[in-house]
Design a binder for these strands. Structure first.
Lengths: 343, 343
DNA sequence: GGGTCCTTGTGAAACGTTTCATAGACTGGT
DNA sequence: ACCAGTCTATGAAACGTTTCACAAGGACCC
């Protein structure tokens, strides 16, 4: 029993034509005050609600942009969402948040639905780098797309990203300086570009100065971190890495929990560095060193770029905004301070 | 330059009528295999994408349900989102996630937009309990609504909730048993029913056995927790509460950070109990005692109830599902185990 | 070989808006 | 009085679908 009153009934009730009602709604200055009031009253009495489908159909455009994230559950993305919402709000457009859950199929499905809905534009962190058919098509057919947290190598699109290679390098430099000679990189799937880049970054920094062991994970969750830690901890004692760099903080938190549970001390037995510097990193059992990214700003900038592209429907220069990450050193990788006797 | 090809062009290209194209799309079994293939080819060649506005307009219904949460950034809600998505997926409906940010105005605005979009139903944790005009109207006009994590006292709607009074009581009993005689409740705004209930629960448990000090907060964030802790810690030494029960884990984490920073030991100097048992609670500096809620299940059940109501458009019995919370005792409120000498 | 059914395909009528060209009614200026 | 110019309001034509009643062509049965 959805709302059944249309503009037509309102018109009848107010004793005007439907064109007039539409004008009251869209260009009120064109209609005389008394008439306008009459129409407004009719609307209120009838509880009329504009039918957006019809409006869109006629207008040819919607008032929404979409944000497709890899994981709604990850604090990194929720902050990006907030940023994007903030930027969109001023422009009167609504942000539809979609969660691909790192699953290419769900991503495709969302993209299809969004295109059918004729969203004005899409902000997306694609699941994989490969030739993403749906996304390519979407772009080709003219929907503005901004890549979030992903350099747009092959795509000639706007993009907003953080230099993940640099981030990985910062972590690597730091760990090498702390004297670690066998370092594990925990992260995956490698199809995710950020993971690739962070790995590449640390590999570069460590090159020739320490050994890098890659421990792949199926995703970027706390659970995956624990599993990875199990694998690392169960290696022969002499060969166990003395430091772990995780592709994100969720993994790092998982590694931390598992290591602690196994009686390995952090950072004395194993140092840990995470990535994202989510709010919970600082509050962890052992405050986590992490590579900080300007998350909210990332979302805000991405949305701003998209809106700019939407508005300049004439000529638009694609831009690539790259933010610099920053290493925040805390206890998990720092010189152990008190708490237990060092070494 | 949005997609410009319509069903009409496809029809022309395939040499059939538009009715046939529509049939291929919606009831393919009605059209002969050869024709169907010809149409499908035309669709592929032209890159045709169905216009959902037009479809909805004609069909009178959308394929979306909405989920309006108080704070996307709060892990509690992100889990609810996941649950709802899971339930919706099977039914082929899309979940639109909206963030009210605990702001009644934004909530209203979202509700308006959603109603204009003729969403099939709404899952919502309303900002305040008061006579929420938009929400009432929405319901009255016939959109199915399920209240999430909120008993539907005044509304005669379906609802899914966790017994927050019980949750508060569990925390209270526990703290009293641990010997605390002056306990602080941190949370707010009081307009949020969950906060109210949790407070009421602990008040009930503590009644006559200990003193309860209420420290209101403007919202449920880590920052608000730190502020509250500052206030508590700066009270005269003798009068400082020896335990703090927070309305959610974000607050608790904030309190924990601030207390630790001020040199107060947890749990020896101050015990802390949080609420929600988010993933990060266990990983905190001092693992946090917390009242656990079945978050994902909450979302899943809510969506299921909504879908049920949508499908039984005939007669539908509103139901109220109430889950029981569970107190998870960890170090932050437990008997201090090792680490430092007690008391 | 005429009737009955089934299978395919068609054309036109909605759906609820927005927009646009135009009509009517005033206002003033001459 | 008449013409030009302003304001207001109108009706009809889109927008891209879905749906529905119906027609054309076989196939089948007696």
């Amino acid at each position: 029993m959805t709302t059944t009153t249309g503009i037509k009934e309102v018109a009848r009730r107010a004793g005007v034509s439907i064109g007039t009602v539409s004008n009251v709604l869209n260009r009120p200055e064109l209609v005389a005050t008394s008439t306008r009031q009459r129409v407004l009253d009719a609307i209120a009495e009838l509880g009329y609600v504009r039918n957006d489908s019809a409006r869109q159909l006629r207008a040819g455009q919607s008032r929404q942009i979409a944000l497709v994230v890899l994981d709604v559950t990850n604090p990194f993305f929720t902050d990006v969402v907030r940023g994007a919402e903030a930027a969109a709000e001023d422009h009167g457009v609504m942000v539809v948040v979609c969660n691909s859950g790192e699953d290419a199929h769900r991503e495709q499905r969302h993209l299809e639905l969004l295109e059918e809905q004729r969203v004005r534009g899409v902000l997306i962190t694609p699941v994989d780098e490969g030739p993403n058919s749906r996304l390519e098509q979407l772009i080709q057919r003219g929907t503005p797309v901004v890549l979030v947290d992903r350099g747009s190598g092959r795509h000639s699109r706007c993009s907003v990203a953080v230099d993940d290679i640099l981030g990985g390098r910062l972590a690597g430099e730091h760990l090498v300086e702390q004297g670690h000679r066998r370092i594990a990189f925990v992260g995956g799937p490698m199809s995710i570009a950020q993971v690739q880049d962070r790995r590449a970054g640390i590999a570069e920094a460590v090159e020739g100065r320490a050994e890098l062991v890659v421990v792949p994970t199926p995703n970027l969750t706390v659970a995956a971190g624990r599993a990875a830690a199990t694998q690392i901890a169960s290696g022969p004692d002499g060969e166990r890495p003395t430091a772990v760099f995780c592709a994100n903080d969720l993994l790092a938190l998982g590694v931390l929990q598992e290591m602690t549970q196994r009686g390995l001390r952090v950072p004395q037995d194993v140092a840990i560095v995470g990535y994202d510097d989510i709010e919970f990193a600082a509050a962890a059992a052992v405050p986590l060193s992490s590579v900080r990214q300007p998350r909210e700003q990332l979302g805000r900038t991405a949305a701003a770029l998209l809106l700019e592209e939407i508005e300049d429907d004439g000529r638009h220069e694609h831009r690539h905004v790259v933010f610099q990450p920053e290493l925040i050193v805390r206890e998990s990788s720092g010189r152990p301070r008190g708490r237990r006797k060092g070494r």
